[in-house]
Design a protein around this nucleic acid. Sequence first.
DNA 1: TTGACTATTGCGAATGAATTGCATTTACAG
DNA 2: CTGTAAATGCAATTCATTCGCAATAGTCAA
Lengths: 139, 139
Amino acid sequence: MSAETTDFARALREAGLRVTQQRLALLSILMDAADHPNADELLARARGLDDSMSLATVYRTLSALEEAGLIRKLSLEGEPARYEIAPVAEHDHLVDVETGEVIELESDEINRLRAELAAKLGYEIVSQHTLIRARKLRG
Amino acid sequence: MSAETTDFARALREAGLRVTQQRLALLSILMDAADHPNADELLARARGLDDSMSLATVYRTLSALEEAGLIRKLSLEGEPARYEIAPVAEHDHLVDVETGEVIELESDEINRLRAELAAKLGYEIVSQHTLIRARKLRG
DNA sequence: TTGACTATTGCGAATGAATTGCATTTACAG
DNA sequence: CTGTAAATGCAATTCATTCGCAATAGTCAA
């Protein structure tokens, strides 16, 4: 097993989860994914590694991994949720309204403003996410 | 009819939509709502005014009104979408993770930062929304 | 006003993402 | 190795939302 696989196993154990083929498969698929796959796409890719995986397991695994903080669920409007490996730094998303492409946005400054805004109201932020729908400008 | 009802009728006509009892009812309910009701709640309230309204009509009307820019759909994680009258100034939302209460946030500054961010990537913003989940700090 | 045209509605059935019950399998502690 | 609870696969279910279709009701022109 590669170093990465070992890391996933440790991460699972630290989260109090058993290390299963299915969980390792989904984690490695998400780690390698350049895009933000949804449950069906994850199932299709996972079956390339282990053709017995079921959709129910994909959903249950994704919930468990999200709860453990290992992955992030990205709920978009009118389409199935997409998933990504939990980013080291939190980031927001920009969806190209024409192509559906998802672009990751960094902005510490925005995060700081939001934290201040919440604090002013007497709240501490649990999670925050900005979703921008945008159209590519003609070059 | 009150001035408000007349305004709604004009708004509908300007959007190229027929002025129906159902649309007026939903618009006035949303205008008066202090909260952010979902489709079921809107149906229940609408039946107080017109007990023949159907859930299908609620959904179809909400889509039409949203498309016309008269209302805004607020998609939350794991629960039915909620709706609000289209605000004069765009704003974001903070959801209290303990009570489910939705608080509206103003931040021109954040909006400006997001527009800049998008422009830098060659995009023009179609819509943008920030959802913060937060916990009330002990006084 | 009246009639005609077509958007809108109500109803029930259908859809589709996500969840669940249950019997079987598997991880892993002892 | 063995026992036990956790995890899985499958099929059935849930629930928000959408759709087909016949009936109704806005709107527009005469």
